[in-house]
Write a protein that binds this DNA or RNA. Structure first.
Length: 299
RNA sequence: GGUCCUGUGGCCGAGUGGUUAGGCAGAAGUCUGCAAAACUUUGUACAGCGGUUCAAAUCCGCUCGGGACCU
């Protein structure tokens, strides 16, 4: 059976370096599962692998979208699987690396077949929220799908909108469609996550943000100003500097905010990966530890 | 030396004689098509010591620490 090596972990933990080292060691290629590195032009702020790194190992799903292109998990599941199956024709191993837990989950376990988001419906629901409040929309959901209403975060507008969107498009309840059936894949999955103590992690994050500034993050963000309202730019490192460019924040404060938001993000990532018990956490000599796990799982 | 102001949990910051301020950070968590998103939970702190009072973080005194002004 072919092996998909999944590398997870919080931002700034060293995923990129480990993935590249593993890809070299196992003579294979890398699939990225990073929802922001998908986009062209977002380089420094997303800590995308350098051009040298990108040239040393073949990476898929990096720089394949323009900032204005819409994309979603459903498509990623299909696109990534197609690519993985193609590459497994000539490779024993593949490396999947990224910080977007949900995207990794979609590749490894699949997601239910649901209708895509519909901009017109979405606009309609947003309007209701603006005019009558989220509670109104929640009531609407209660009528349409009381079962999901019971368990949904009632203050989370994304969840409520999405459920209603699915209901309106499908004619079924969200509860009926959202079965969370885990799909089986025609390959083995070895999940490895990088473990760092919190203090070290936060220190690395802070340092990396300083490095990004030295590399010219402000210039990158300035050049992306025309795209600022796009989803791709709803990203740590960009929003804060847009505010700086608006003169609503001082540069030092903006940098501190980037660090803070990156730390918050890293914490959420750790929570996500910890929940998936299939991950084996490694520390210390990452390449060595990861290799041990891979060899053990290859027998 | 004198006069006056001030001292709230890691930080910011309200507040009143007897009810949880709140925000941020931190911690824990949720997660199925915008996921680097969105959201949830979580802190009995009022400088110290006395006193007044049924009751004090809130009033009084002293001590200590800030700050301002005065010659």
């Amino acid at each position: 059976m072919k092996k998909l090596i999944v590398i997870g972990g919080p931002t700034a933990s060293g995923k990129t370096g480990l993935a590249i080292a593993l890809a070299k060691k196992f003579h294979t290629e890398i699939i990225s599962a990073d929802s922001r590195q998908f986009y062209k032009k977002l380089d420094i702020g997303t800590a995308k692998p350098s051009s040298i790194e990108l040239n040393s190992i073949v990476h898929h799903f990096i720089n394949f979208l323009e900032p204005h292109e819409d994309y979603n998990i459903g498509r990623f599941e299909m696109d990534a699987l197609e690519k993985i199956n193609e590459l497994f024709k000539t490779n024993e191993y593949l490396v999947l690396v990224g910080g977007s837990g949900l995207y990794i989950q979609a590749v490894c376990e699949g997601i239910d077949e649901l209708p895509e988001s519909d901009p017109i419906l979405r606009a309609k629901f947003k309007k209701i929220i603006e005019e009558d409040g989220l509670e109104k929309l929640a009531e609407y959901l209660k009528e349409k799908d009381p079962e999901y209403f019971e368990i949904v975060d009632k203050k989370n507008k994304h969840r409520i909108i999405r459920a209603l969107e699915v209901i309106e498009q499908s004619g079924s309840t969200y509860t009926d469609l959202r079965k969370s059936n885990k799909k089986t894949r025609p390959f083995d999955i070895i999940k490895i996550a990088i473990d760092l103590d919190r203090t070290t992690l936060y220190q690395k994050i802070n340092e990396r943000v300083d490095d990004m500034m030295k590399l010219g993050l402000v210039d990158e963000v300035t050049s992306l100003l025309p795209y600022r309202n796009l989803n791709a730019l709803k990203t740590v490192g960009y929003e804060e500097l847009f505010d700086y460019l608006d003169h609503t924040t001082l540069i030092d404060d903006a940098v501190e905010l980037i660090k803070k938001h990156s730390r918050n993000y890293a914490k959420r990532q750790v929570t996500w990966f910890k929940r998936d018990k299939k991950f084996e956490w490694i520390k210390g000599n990452l390449l060595e530890e990861a290799t041990k796990i891979i060899i053990r799982n290859s027998k």
